[in-house]
């Protein structure tokens, strides 16, 4: 696993963790450790997620009814809780994704000219 320096890691914007979890679960049910690993993989280690901080988010998503949980057995014969996306979770993910995209477009629209001024 390639290590980056701490400064390069991006702190998560509040609320985006939910979106990342939902996104991870789009490919099928998985357990907490699996979710943590795939977030790391997807962001190429740029996102710093303390694994522990995943669990409060998982509970919250369950309460909202976006994911469900069930005990299962992992590939190493380890008992683990598997999380699965619900239909309303899917809808939420779609809504969040498009909202995020709008947000990113808006921010980059603001930032670009400033950057070009600096560089010129």
């Amino acid at each position: 696993m390639a290590k980056r320096s701490e400064q390069d890691r991006i702190e998560l914007v509040y609320g985006t963790l939910d979106m990342l979890i939902l996104r991870t679960l789009r490919w099928g049910p998985t357990h907490g450790h699996g979710i943590a690993k795939s977030i790391e993989r997807m962001s190429e280690d740029a996102l710093k997620v303390e694994h522990g901080s995943l669990y409060p988010a998982l509970q919250r998503l369950q309460q909202e009814g976006w994911i469900t949980a069930e005990w299962g057995v992992s590939k190493n014969n380890q008992r683990a809780k598997y999380y699965q996306l619900t239909e309303s979770g899917r809808r939420k993910l779609r809504a969040e994704t498009s909202r995020w995209e709008r947000f990113v477009r808006a921010i980059s629209g603001v930032l670009k000219p400033a950057e070009s001024e600096k560089t010129s």
């Binding site: 303390e50 694994h51 522990g52 901080s53 995943l54 669990y55 409060p56 919250r60």
Partner: peptide, 17 residues
């Protein structure tokens, strides 16, 4: 280390309930 503060994670998870 990677997991972080266990107690905090637990409190955070149960507080919600």
């Amino acid at each position: 280390r990677r997991f972080g503060n266990v107690t905090l994670a637990e409190e955070g998870s149960t507080e919600m309930w």
